[in-house]
Amino acid sequence: MALWVLFHLLLFLVLKPTDANLEGDALFALRREVHDPNNILQSWDPTLVDPCTWFHVTCDSQNRVTRLDLGNAKLSGKLVPDLGKLERLEYLELYMNNLVGPIPAELGNLKSLVSLDLYHNNLTGSIPPSLSNLSNLRFLRLNRNRLTGRIPRELTKLGNLKILCVQQ
């Protein structure tokens, strides 16, 4: 019995992602999902605990990711729900790429987000109502995508929102 408990404890420790690398894992999930013809993401090494050394990633003094700048990077592929794990992210700049598929509802977990720029892609589906959780959001640019449906009424709760662009 003791050997069984020890085995499962060791298995848990080996398989559990460390908090230090949780953000790196989230960013690398995006790296795996997108096609990067210009090797913009070549510095994104999943073996490094600290993604703050990666190009196009900015971090705060506690080495937490605060900004992701991949606008006009010629990326194609899908956004990943894992981006919702970047708890201190303030700026998500993925405009003017060829991203497809839905906007993950998990982006509504990014409580520190000030700017969400996904404009000029090929995103489809509806705007997730979960974006109404982003109380610090000032800029929401989703224009020039192929989004459908109504603008969620919940977005009216965003009292700090200064710019909302959703036109086709």
Score class of each variant (00 low, 15 high):
D45T: 04
L118K: 04
D69P: 01
H120C: 01
L89E: 11
D36R: 02
L94Y: 12
D36G: 02
P37Q: 13
V65S: 06
S61F: 05
M96D: 11
V80A: 06
G77R: 01
E87W: 00
L48F: 00
L92S: 04
E106S: 14
D50P: 05
L83M: 12
L116Y: 07
K78W: 00
L68C: 09
K111E: 10
L92A: 05
L110W: 14
A73M: 06
E93T: 00
L110Y: 12
D45H: 10
W54L: 02
E93P: 01
D117I: 01
N39L: 15
L94M: 14
L107P: 11
N38Y: 14
L110A: 09
T47V: 09
K78D: 03
V100G: 03
E93G: 00
G77Q: 04
N39G: 15
L75E: 05
A73C: 08
S115F: 00
Q42D: 15
V49I: 14
K85R: 15
I40Q: 12
T58W: 00
L116E: 06
S43I: 10
D82K: 11
L107C: 10
L107T: 05
G84M: 02
N97R: 05
L99K: 07
Y119R: 02
W54G: 01
I40E: 13
P81F: 03
N72K: 13
L68M: 08
Y91G: 00
K111C: 02
E90I: 00
L99G: 02
D50S: 13
H56F: 14
S76A: 14
L75A: 04
N72M: 08
A73Q: 02
A105I: 09
V49P: 00
P104W: 08
L75Q: 03
V49D: 14
A73Y: 03
C52N: 12
L86Y: 03
N39C: 13
V114S: 02
D82Y: 08
E93F: 06
L110F: 13
F55Q: 12
L75T: 04
N38C: 03
N97E: 12
L79I: 12
S112M: 08
L99T: 02
I103V: 13
T58Y: 01
N98K: 15
